[in-house]
């Protein structure tokens, strides 16, 4: 099959049960860290993650499944769109600082 070079893509979604953002990992698991996402570097790989996404959607494990484009950087994959960067890194603001501190202490 012919394979052309495209922008690297990853598959993202939100978990059905709690809505948390997830990315498809290399061994087919859904990970909460974009760093652990499987990088689809050619069309076949993109087709494979798209198919995996449709299966997971049909199995009601995730919702809002999307293939997004990322740039491979030294510190890991970086989505081109700000929206996807915020999904990966969380809100850009220091929300509820007191409570966040409590959560990290508990962890």
């Amino acid at each position: 099959m012919k394979t052309t070079q495209t922008k690297t893509k990853v598959l993202t979604a939100n978990r059905l049960t709690d809505g948390i953002s997830v990315w498809l990992g290399a061994s087919g698991e859904w990970t909460t860290s974009l760093k652990d996402a499987f990088l689809a570097r050619h069309e076949d790989a993109v087709a494979a993650i798209e198919a995996a996404g449709q299966t997971a959607l049909a199995d009601n494990r995730v919702v809002d499944v999307n293939v997004i484009e990322i740039e491979e950087t030294e510190s890991g994959p970086r989505p081109y769109r700000l929206r996807e960067r915020i999904r990966a890194d969380g809100p850009t603001i220091d929300y509820a600082p007191a409570s966040a501190a409590r959560v990290s202490q508990a962890a």
């Binding site: 953002s21 999904r87 809100p91």
Partner: peptide
Amino acid sequence: VYLQLHAY
């Protein structure tokens, strides 16, 4: 109940 960027 909405689905937003990070969660419901």
